[in-house]
Amino acid sequence: MGTMFYGDAATPIGIEDRALAHLKVAIITKLRRGESFTVSWKHADDQPSGRSTLWLHPNIPLRFVFDEPEPTELSRAWVEELMRSANSTGGILLVPEQLDTGPIATVEPLATGPGAEEPAP
């Protein structure tokens, strides 16, 4: 479980390392542009029910702490989804990673040998 510290808030925000790594990229991209925005998330099962929203501003200190010593491999699709939400009026909505578990498309091998059709020029 990673941790995000924002401003002088005494309560750290616990976020799973992989999610925090993706969120970090989206947040840093926005802050580098000098843009202010919100980040919202649903509370974890071990916390009181509800949700939270932070207003992030480039002049407020922000720190990310990861439990895992090695950086995680990022999913371009998840970062892009977070960036789309960051650019909306609602700000970043931290959502679980959507893994594509559908069947993998296959390509039929080209026929070769006697009787195989030649590709059109």
Score class of each variant (00 low, 15 high):
Met1Ala: 09
Thr3Trp: 01
Met4Lys: 03
Met4Thr: 04
Met4Val: 13
Phe5Leu: 13
Phe5Ile: 09
Tyr6Phe: 07
Tyr6Met: 01
Gly7Tyr: 03
Thr11Gly: 02
Ile15Ser: 01
Ile15Tyr: 00
Glu16Gln: 03
Arg18Cys: 04
Arg18Trp: 09
Ala19Tyr: 07
Ala19Lys: 08
Leu20Met: 01
Leu20Asp: 01
His22Glu: 02
Leu23Asp: 00
Leu23Trp: 00
Lys24His: 12
Val25Arg: 09
Ala26Asp: 02
Ile27Lys: 02
Ile27Pro: 06
Ile27Val: 10
Ile27Glu: 05
Ile28Arg: 11
Ile28Tyr: 11
Ile28Cys: 12
Thr29Val: 08
Leu31Asp: 07
Arg33Thr: 10
Arg33Lys: 15
Arg33Leu: 12
Gly34Trp: 02
Gly34Met: 03
Ser36Pro: 11
Ser36Tyr: 05
Phe37Arg: 02
Phe37His: 04
Val39Ser: 05
Val39Asp: 06
Val39Thr: 04
His43Ser: 08
His43Ile: 00
Asp45Gly: 07
Asp46Phe: 14
Asp46Leu: 07
Asp46Gly: 06
Gln47Asp: 15
Pro48Gly: 07
Pro48Phe: 07
Ser49Asp: 15
Ser49Arg: 12
Gly50Ile: 02
Gly50His: 04
Arg51Glu: 10
Leu54Asp: 04
Leu54Cys: 03
Trp55Leu: 14
Leu56Met: 03
Leu56Asn: 01
His57Leu: 05
His57Tyr: 05
His57Arg: 09
Pro58Thr: 06
Asn59Cys: 03
Ile60Ser: 08
Ile60Asn: 12
Pro61Glu: 04
Leu62Asp: 05
Leu62Gln: 02
Arg63Tyr: 09
Phe64Asn: 09
Phe64Met: 06
Val65Gly: 01
Val65Phe: 00
Phe66Pro: 03
Phe66Cys: 03
Asp67Ala: 08
Pro71Phe: 08
Glu73Asn: 10
Glu73Ala: 13
Leu74Gln: 05
Leu74Thr: 01
Ala77Asp: 14
Ala77Arg: 11
Ala77Gln: 11
Trp78Asp: 10
Trp78Phe: 11
Val79Arg: 03
Val79Phe: 01
Glu80Val: 03
Glu81Asp: 14
Leu82Val: 04
Leu82Ile: 02
Met83Asn: 15
Ser85Phe: 00
Ser85His: 06
Asn87Glu: 09
Thr89Gln: 13
Gly90Phe: 07
Gly90Ile: 06
Gly91Thr: 05
Ile92Gln: 03
Leu93Glu: 09
Val95Met: 15
Pro96Glu: 03
Pro96Ala: 00
Glu97His: 08
Glu97Ala: 08
Gln98Ile: 08
Gln98Arg: 10
Gln98His: 07
Leu99Tyr: 10
Leu99Ala: 12
Leu99Asn: 10
Leu99Phe: 11
Thr101Ser: 07
Thr101Asn: 09
Pro103His: 07
Ile104Gly: 14
Ala105Leu: 09
Ala105Phe: 06
Thr106Leu: 14
Thr106Met: 14
Glu108Leu: 14
Pro109Trp: 06
Ala111Phe: 12
Thr112Trp: 13
Gly113Pro: 12
Gly115Ser: 15
Gly115Pro: 15
Gly115Thr: 15
Gly115Ala: 15
Glu117Ala: 15
Glu118Asn: 14
Ala120Tyr: 12
Pro121Tyr: 12
Pro121Ile: 11
